[in-house]
Design a binder for these strands. Structure first.
Lengths: 108, 108
DNA sequence: ACGATATTTAGATATTTGGCTAAATATCGA
DNA sequence: TCGATATTTAGCCAAATATCTAAATATCGT
Protein backbone atom coordinates (compact mmCIF):
# COMPACT_ATOMS: atom_id res chain seq x y z
CA UNK A 1 0.00 0.00 0.00
CA UNK A 2 2.89 2.29 0.68
CA UNK A 3 4.34 1.15 -2.63
CA UNK A 4 1.14 2.19 -4.36
CA UNK A 5 1.39 5.73 -3.04
CA UNK A 6 5.07 5.83 -3.88
CA UNK A 7 4.25 4.76 -7.40
CA UNK A 8 1.50 7.35 -7.63
CA UNK A 9 3.88 10.13 -6.59
CA UNK A 10 5.35 10.47 -10.07
CA UNK A 11 3.37 12.25 -12.82
CA UNK A 12 4.75 10.02 -15.56
CA UNK A 13 3.61 6.92 -13.75
CA UNK A 14 0.17 8.37 -13.06
CA UNK A 15 -0.18 9.13 -16.74
CA UNK A 16 0.85 5.61 -17.65
CA UNK A 17 -1.97 4.32 -15.50
CA UNK A 18 -4.38 6.70 -17.16
CA UNK A 19 -3.34 5.49 -20.58
CA UNK A 20 -3.75 1.92 -19.44
CA UNK A 21 -7.20 2.70 -18.17
CA UNK A 22 -8.42 2.64 -21.77
CA UNK A 23 -6.71 -0.48 -23.02
CA UNK A 24 -3.64 -2.63 -22.48
CA UNK A 25 -0.61 -1.32 -24.31
CA UNK A 26 2.89 -2.47 -25.05
CA UNK A 27 5.91 -0.91 -23.39
CA UNK A 28 6.90 0.77 -26.62
CA UNK A 29 3.45 2.08 -27.28
CA UNK A 30 3.33 3.59 -23.82
CA UNK A 31 6.82 5.02 -24.16
CA UNK A 32 5.79 6.88 -27.30
CA UNK A 33 3.63 9.10 -25.13
CA UNK A 34 6.53 10.41 -23.09
CA UNK A 35 9.64 12.46 -23.81
CA UNK A 36 11.99 10.13 -21.94
CA UNK A 37 14.15 7.21 -23.01
CA UNK A 38 12.97 3.62 -23.18
CA UNK A 39 15.14 2.52 -20.27
CA UNK A 40 13.72 5.29 -18.13
CA UNK A 41 10.22 4.18 -19.00
CA UNK A 42 11.21 0.62 -18.25
CA UNK A 43 12.20 1.72 -14.76
CA UNK A 44 8.81 3.38 -14.30
CA UNK A 45 7.10 0.17 -15.39
CA UNK A 46 9.16 -1.70 -12.82
CA UNK A 47 7.94 0.59 -10.05
CA UNK A 48 4.36 0.12 -11.16
CA UNK A 49 4.88 -3.62 -11.36
CA UNK A 50 6.34 -3.75 -7.86
CA UNK A 51 3.33 -1.86 -6.58
CA UNK A 52 1.24 -4.50 -8.33
CA UNK A 53 -0.56 -1.76 -10.24
CA UNK A 54 0.16 -3.25 -13.65
CA UNK A 55 0.59 -6.71 -15.06
CA UNK A 56 3.06 -7.69 -17.75
CA UNK A 57 2.23 -10.08 -20.54
CA UNK A 58 4.89 -11.06 -22.99
CA UNK A 59 3.71 -11.78 -26.51
CA UNK A 60 6.49 -12.52 -28.90
CA UNK A 61 8.99 -9.73 -28.82
CA UNK A 62 6.84 -7.19 -27.09
CA UNK A 63 5.43 -6.84 -23.60
CA UNK A 64 1.89 -5.75 -23.05
CA UNK A 65 1.05 -3.98 -19.83
CA UNK A 66 -2.35 -4.04 -18.32
CA UNK A 67 -3.81 -1.97 -15.50
CA UNK A 68 -4.76 -3.86 -12.35
CA UNK A 69 -7.68 -1.65 -11.50
CA UNK A 70 -8.64 -3.55 -8.39
CA UNK A 71 -5.32 -2.85 -6.73
CA UNK A 72 -5.54 0.84 -7.48
CA UNK A 73 -9.10 0.80 -6.31
CA UNK A 74 -8.35 -0.94 -3.03
CA UNK A 75 -5.56 1.46 -2.14
CA UNK A 76 -7.34 4.62 -3.17
CA UNK A 77 -10.76 3.70 -1.88
CA UNK A 78 -9.30 2.36 1.32
CA UNK A 79 -7.48 5.57 2.01
CA UNK A 80 -10.37 7.69 0.87
CA UNK A 81 -12.81 5.94 3.14
CA UNK A 82 -10.40 6.35 6.00
CA UNK A 83 -11.21 10.02 5.78
CA UNK A 84 -14.90 9.66 5.28
CA UNK A 85 -14.44 11.07 1.82
CA UNK A 86 -16.91 10.15 -0.90
CA UNK A 87 -16.93 6.58 -2.21
CA UNK A 88 -18.35 3.70 -0.19
CA UNK A 89 -22.05 2.93 0.11
CA UNK A 90 -22.77 1.51 -3.32
CA UNK A 91 -20.46 -0.54 -5.48
CA UNK A 92 -20.18 1.51 -8.66
CA UNK A 93 -21.28 -0.09 -11.88
CA UNK A 94 -18.46 -1.80 -13.65
CA UNK A 95 -16.19 -1.83 -10.63
CA UNK A 96 -13.63 -4.58 -10.78
CA UNK A 97 -12.35 -4.40 -7.26
CA UNK A 98 -13.29 -6.07 -4.00
CA UNK A 99 -16.45 -5.05 -2.13
CA UNK A 100 -14.59 -4.29 1.08
CA UNK A 101 -16.96 -3.42 3.96
CA UNK A 102 -17.17 0.19 4.96
CA UNK A 103 -14.72 0.74 7.74
CA UNK A 104 -15.77 3.67 9.85
CA UNK A 105 -13.26 4.45 12.55
CA UNK A 106 -9.90 2.96 11.75
CA UNK A 107 -6.90 4.68 13.11
CA UNK A 108 -3.85 2.57 12.99
CA UNK B 1 -2.23 18.17 -7.38
CA UNK B 2 1.15 16.68 -8.05
CA UNK B 3 2.25 18.14 -4.73
CA UNK B 4 -0.62 16.34 -3.03
CA UNK B 5 0.50 12.97 -4.37
CA UNK B 6 4.08 13.77 -3.48
CA UNK B 7 2.99 14.60 0.04
CA UNK B 8 0.96 11.40 0.23
CA UNK B 9 3.96 9.31 -0.78
CA UNK B 10 5.42 9.31 2.72
CA UNK B 11 3.90 7.10 5.43
CA UNK B 12 4.67 9.57 8.19
CA UNK B 13 2.81 12.31 6.38
CA UNK B 14 -0.15 10.08 5.66
CA UNK B 15 -0.33 9.23 9.32
CA UNK B 16 -0.19 12.90 10.26
CA UNK B 17 -3.22 13.47 8.07
CA UNK B 18 -5.01 10.56 9.70
CA UNK B 19 -4.31 11.96 13.14
CA UNK B 20 -5.56 15.33 12.02
CA UNK B 21 -8.73 13.77 10.72
CA UNK B 22 -9.98 13.51 14.30
CA UNK B 23 -9.06 16.93 15.59
CA UNK B 24 -6.60 19.74 15.08
CA UNK B 25 -3.36 19.18 16.94
CA UNK B 26 -0.24 21.14 17.72
CA UNK B 27 3.08 20.38 16.07
CA UNK B 28 4.43 18.97 19.31
CA UNK B 29 1.39 16.85 19.93
CA UNK B 30 1.68 15.37 16.46
CA UNK B 31 5.41 14.85 16.83
CA UNK B 32 4.85 12.78 19.94
CA UNK B 33 3.30 10.11 17.75
CA UNK B 34 6.47 9.57 15.73
CA UNK B 35 9.99 8.35 16.44
CA UNK B 36 11.71 11.18 14.61
CA UNK B 37 13.08 14.54 15.71
CA UNK B 38 11.05 17.71 15.88
CA UNK B 39 12.88 19.35 12.99
CA UNK B 40 12.19 16.34 10.84
CA UNK B 41 8.52 16.54 11.70
CA UNK B 42 8.61 20.24 10.98
CA UNK B 43 9.88 19.43 7.49
CA UNK B 44 7.01 17.02 6.97
CA UNK B 45 4.56 19.68 8.08
CA UNK B 46 6.11 22.02 5.54
CA UNK B 47 5.52 19.52 2.75
CA UNK B 48 1.92 19.09 3.82
CA UNK B 49 1.50 22.84 4.03
CA UNK B 50 2.93 23.35 0.56
CA UNK B 51 0.49 20.79 -0.76
CA UNK B 52 -2.20 22.82 0.97
CA UNK B 53 -3.29 19.73 2.85
CA UNK B 54 -3.00 21.31 6.27
CA UNK B 55 -3.45 24.76 7.71
CA UNK B 56 -1.32 26.29 10.44
CA UNK B 57 -2.74 28.36 13.23
CA UNK B 58 -0.45 29.97 15.70
CA UNK B 59 -1.80 30.34 19.21
CA UNK B 60 0.70 31.72 21.63
CA UNK B 61 3.83 29.66 21.57
CA UNK B 62 2.38 26.65 19.80
CA UNK B 63 1.14 26.01 16.31
CA UNK B 64 -2.01 24.07 15.72
CA UNK B 65 -2.36 22.19 12.48
CA UNK B 66 -5.67 21.44 10.92
CA UNK B 67 -6.56 19.12 8.08
CA UNK B 68 -7.91 20.73 4.94
CA UNK B 69 -10.20 17.90 4.02
CA UNK B 70 -11.55 19.54 0.90
CA UNK B 71 -8.13 19.67 -0.71
CA UNK B 72 -7.46 16.03 0.01
CA UNK B 73 -10.91 15.23 -1.22
CA UNK B 74 -10.56 17.11 -4.48
CA UNK B 75 -7.27 15.46 -5.34
CA UNK B 76 -8.25 11.95 -4.34
CA UNK B 77 -11.77 12.04 -5.69
CA UNK B 78 -10.61 13.69 -8.89
CA UNK B 79 -8.07 11.01 -9.54
CA UNK B 80 -10.39 8.26 -8.43
CA UNK B 81 -13.14 9.39 -10.75
CA UNK B 82 -10.65 9.53 -13.58
CA UNK B 83 -10.55 5.76 -13.34
CA UNK B 84 -14.24 5.24 -12.89
CA UNK B 85 -13.50 4.02 -9.40
CA UNK B 86 -16.16 4.44 -6.75
CA UNK B 87 -17.04 7.93 -5.57
CA UNK B 88 -18.89 10.39 -7.81
CA UNK B 89 -22.63 10.42 -8.32
CA UNK B 90 -23.75 11.74 -4.97
CA UNK B 91 -22.00 14.37 -2.92
CA UNK B 92 -21.35 12.63 0.38
CA UNK B 93 -23.01 14.11 3.44
CA UNK B 94 -20.82 16.67 5.13
CA UNK B 95 -18.51 16.97 2.17
CA UNK B 96 -16.57 20.18 2.23
CA UNK B 97 -15.11 20.05 -1.22
CA UNK B 98 -16.25 21.37 -4.58
CA UNK B 99 -19.03 19.68 -6.51
CA UNK B 100 -16.84 19.18 -9.57
CA UNK B 101 -18.82 17.74 -12.49
CA UNK B 102 -18.16 14.13 -13.40
CA UNK B 103 -15.56 14.15 -16.13
CA UNK B 104 -15.90 11.07 -18.24
CA UNK B 105 -13.19 10.87 -20.81
CA UNK B 106 -10.33 13.16 -19.95
CA UNK B 107 -6.95 12.08 -21.11
CA UNK B 108 -4.56 14.93 -21.17
C1' DA C 1 14.32 41.68 31.00
C1' DC C 2 15.04 36.55 31.81
C1' DG C 3 14.42 31.91 31.50
C1' DA C 4 11.57 28.27 29.83
C1' DT C 5 8.95 26.27 26.14
C1' DA C 6 7.45 25.43 21.18
C1' DT C 7 8.70 25.46 16.70
C1' DT C 8 11.40 26.46 12.75
C1' DT C 9 15.72 27.43 10.13
C1' DA C 10 20.53 26.26 8.93
C1' DG C 11 23.75 23.21 7.62
C1' DA C 12 25.52 18.52 7.07
C1' DT C 13 25.05 13.77 5.42
C1' DA C 14 23.25 9.41 3.49
C1' DT C 15 19.87 7.39 0.59
C1' DT C 16 16.65 7.38 -3.04
C1' DT C 17 15.06 8.80 -7.38
C1' DG C 18 14.78 9.94 -12.24
C1' DG C 19 17.35 10.48 -16.00
C1' DC C 20 20.91 9.10 -19.59
C1' DT C 21 23.96 5.97 -22.74
C1' DA C 22 25.72 1.55 -23.79
C1' DA C 23 25.21 -3.21 -23.59
C1' DA C 24 22.71 -7.54 -22.80
C1' DT C 25 18.65 -10.54 -23.73
C1' DA C 26 14.90 -12.47 -26.21
C1' DT C 27 12.26 -13.33 -30.21
C1' DC C 28 10.94 -12.97 -34.95
C1' DG C 29 11.53 -13.51 -40.00
C1' DA C 30 14.24 -14.77 -43.77
C1' DT D 1 22.09 -18.67 -38.20
C1' DC D 2 21.87 -13.60 -38.96
C1' DG D 3 20.04 -9.27 -38.62
C1' DA D 4 16.33 -6.46 -37.01
C1' DT D 5 13.23 -5.16 -33.33
C1' DA D 6 11.50 -4.73 -28.41
C1' DT D 7 12.66 -4.44 -23.88
C1' DT D 8 15.45 -4.71 -19.91
C1' DT D 9 19.85 -4.53 -17.24
C1' DA D 10 24.17 -2.23 -15.96
C1' DG D 11 26.56 1.61 -14.67
C1' DC D 12 26.84 6.38 -14.03
C1' DC D 13 25.37 11.12 -12.48
C1' DA D 14 22.68 15.06 -10.61
C1' DA D 15 18.95 16.44 -7.96
C1' DA D 16 15.65 15.54 -4.45
C1' DT D 17 14.52 13.59 0.07
C1' DA D 18 14.69 12.21 4.89
C1' DT D 19 17.19 12.53 8.66
C1' DC D 20 20.12 14.55 12.28
C1' DT D 21 22.26 18.25 15.62
C1' DA D 22 22.86 22.97 16.72
C1' DA D 23 21.17 27.43 16.53
C1' DA D 24 17.63 30.99 15.74
C1' DT D 25 12.99 32.88 16.63
C1' DA D 26 8.84 33.78 19.05
C1' DT D 27 6.02 33.97 23.07
C1' DC D 28 4.75 33.25 27.79
C1' DG D 29 5.11 33.90 32.79
C1' DT D 30 7.37 36.04 36.39
Amino acid sequence: MNSVFKALADPTRRKVLELLRQRPMTAGELSDHFPVSRPTMSAHFAVLREADLIEANKIGTSITYQLKLSVLEDALLGFTQLFGIGAAERTPAGATGSPKPTREGADE
